[in-house]
Design a protein around this nucleic acid. Structure first.
Length: 602
DNA sequence: CGCCTCCAGGTAATGCACCA
DNA sequence: TGGTGCATTACCTGGAGGCG
């Protein structure tokens, strides 16, 4: 999808110099984000009724999901800017100061803000922070005090807990806290750039190679001194986390399945920064715009009472309408279902409508709004559906379940999931958000979402999608939570970099878009790199994962500058940025970067 | 005709076997 | 043990096709 075709999402007017505009962001914004743990959706196992568990239980699934892995990329094109602010960084020494969401935020938490326009994005975010900040723990909005524990993780927990049964009481008011603790340069400890040789000691290992890129990288990384920011971050984390920073930061450790007893404080760390970064207005959302965001204007949030009343009304109707199907488990497959699942031709069923109708029925025995689809011959949809859940498809090649919703004519990818059921849940939540409880068709009874709906008012669709994606199977990818880092068989961490480390997806599409070009093309390809063959350059083995990640970042920034797809915020690598020869349009962003630093905003 | 759903292709990133 | 390159997997998107 070309950037120009992106859904008309609320892209703020970006105050970024030439090249740093929204479309640029969109084009190259395939930011890797967050090491958000693939916090398994354990709760839905417990909360769903037995039918679901029988149908969907997959021990392997949780084992996989709980690994906690890198995040997928998000295309800014699709999710341009989330105009809310992050919380102002707490003072050093506070609990939040220990957060892995700090400066380098632990892995891809911040890589979200990396990729191409991270500087601008982060700059914007930090500027905004400086201007007004977001709510902090203890703040209150409209009289409701913000519970620090109620962050996105909690939100998703809520989503996934989806109680079945008592629907008599509306959930208590909750507010999502966005907390970003990112000591940026010039903020606490930016007193002089103290070289810290130890940090990057590993550097890129010397190795004879014919790859010209290799040589360039070696030189670049060798020459680049460590940034103080990174050092400081390390110090903070190490100093404040007796247990070892990595232990604290890794999703693997945080979300180990048997780790539920961990303090809330630890758990909450992993969830929000990505969104914050992602949402950080790249070019600074106008103050007013941000202020208008529901998050900052509780008055614009859902009125829970109204929502609840509406839901109750709807439930009454639905119970009646779906009475017939309610009693039948959706495990009871019809002949059509069996046929479909066994590869029966959808054309036989023809009636796709028929097939789809059955799907709805089974997916949601009490399918709230299923009245439409069932009674009218089924939901729209081509061919035989691969899933009995709406919005869920199974990737034929990978057999993974993917969920999508359509919003304003554009398809929105919700993530890949291990189970059909979870994909269906993802769809439900997003569709509830986008279309509202009274218009959407969900896979499961809407009453199961009663505790979720209030949350939906405090997040944007995009935020929600990001959350779901982070919870999706996609996060189980890779052995490391850092991009470009893999565990070598010898036990060390191997760093590699691709010759197109830059954000994916958009480049190709932009090629034919001349005027809308983002400047990418004008940047010379990496040394020795053609545009055709994908090549990975070996950067060396490292004892620590972190070290490997930083080496990757340095190489990426050296090669791709602002377009680099990094694990940590790009401002951690000013020296590499200087080494990188920027393209014309990058220069504008670099200037912005410099100005921000000069103003001590960054 | 527009919207919606789903399929499946392209590409990025990681896994892993193999070689020096 | 270190390094390379291919295979596999996952992410994301474009577009086909059905329905109102």
């Amino acid at each position: 999808m070309a950037a120009a075709d992106a859904a008309p999402l609320p892209v703020v007017d970006l105050a970024v110099p030439e090249g740093g505009n929204a479309s640029v962001e969109g084009d190259r914004g395939a930011a890797m984000y967050s090491s958000a743990p693939a916090h398994h959706l354990a709760s839905d196992e417990h909360s769903l009724d037995g039918r679901d568990r029988v149908a969907e239980d997959d021990p392997a699934e949780d084992a996989v999901v709980s690994r906690g892995k890198p995040a997928p990329k998000i295309y800014q094109t699709q999710y341009p800017v989330l105009p809310y602010a992050a919380a102002a960084p707490p003072p050093t020494g506070t609990a939040d100061a220990m957060s892995p969401c700090k400066p380098s935020g632990g892995a891809r938490e911040n890589s979200l803000g990396n990729s191409c326009t991270s500087i601008a994005r982060e700059a914007g975010g930090s500027i905004f922070d400086a201007l007004q900040g977001g709510p902090l723990a203890g703040d209150s909005i409209d009289g409701d005090s913000i519970d620090p524990a109620q962050d996105f993780t909690a939100f998703l927990d809520t989503v996934c807990t989806l109680p079945v049964g008592s629907c008599d009481e509306p959930p208590s008011s909750t507010m999502v806290e966005f907390s970003m603790s990112i000591p940026l340069p010039g903020e606490g400890g930016d007193k002089g750039r103290v070289a810290h040789p130890g940090v990057y000691q590993g550097g890129i290992q010397k190795k004879s190679s014919n790859n010209p890129l290799h040589g360039a990288l070696q030189a670049a990384v060798r020459n680049a001194s460590s940034s103080h920011q990174t050092f400081q971050y390390e110090s903070l984390r190490e100093g404040s986390m007796p247990g070892g920073q990595d232990d604290m930061c890794t999703p693997q450790s945080q979300f180990r399945r048997d780790d539920h007893s961990m303090p809330q404080l630890e758990r909450r760390h992993t969830s929000y920064v990505p969104e914050v970064y992602h949402g950080s207005p790249i070019g600074m959302a106008p103050y007013e715009q941000v202020q208008q965001h529901p998050y900052h204007h509780p008055s614009q949030m859902y009125d829970e009472t109204q929502v609840w009343q509406k839901m109750q009304q709807m439930q009454g109707v639905r119970r009646t309408m779906s009475a017939n199907t309610h009693s039948s488990s959706h495990l009871t497959y019809s002949r059509e279902d069996l046929s479909r699942h066994l590869g029966g031709s959808s054309k036989n069923n023809n009636s796709n409508s028929s097939a789809s109708g059955k799907r709805d029925q089974h997916a949601s025995p009490s399918n709230n709004n299923s009245n439409n689809s069932n009674s009218s011959g089924g939901a729209r949809g081509p061919r035989g559906s691969s899933s009995r859940y709406r919005g869920v498809t199974q990737h034929r090649r990978t057999k993974r379940w993917e969920a999508h919703v359509w919003d304003k004519g554009k398809q929105v990818y919700l993530g890949g999931f291990e189970s059909e059921h979870r994909a269906g849940r993802a769809y439900d939540v997003v569709v509830l958000k986008t279309r509202g409880p009274d218009k959407c068709q969900t896979n499961f009874p809407i009453e199961e979402y009663k505790s979720v709906i209030p949350w939906l008012g405090s997040v944007t669709r995009d935020e929600l999608v990001l959350l779901l994606r982070r919870r999706s199977k996609g996060f189980s990818r890779g052995s490391s939570k850092y991009i470009g880092v893999t565990k070598h068989k010898c036990g060390k961490w191997e760093a590699r970099i691709s010759n197109s480390n830059k954000s994916m997806g958009s480049e190709k599409k932009k090629e034919g878009e001349g005027a809308a070009g983002d400047g990418h093309q004008e940047d010379a390809p990496p040394p020795g790199q053609g545009t055709t063959a994908r090549k990975y350059t070996y950067l060396g083995l490292f004892d620590s994962e972190l070290e490997a990640a930083r080496t990757h970042d340095k190489a990426a920034v050296t090669l791709f500058g602002l377009h680099a797809n990094t694990n940590f915020p790009i401002q951690n690598y000013p020296d590499e940025l200087m080494i990188h020869k920027p393209g014309k349009k990058e220069i504008g962003m670099l200037e912005l970067f410099s100005n921000l630093q000069a103003q001590e905003i960054m």
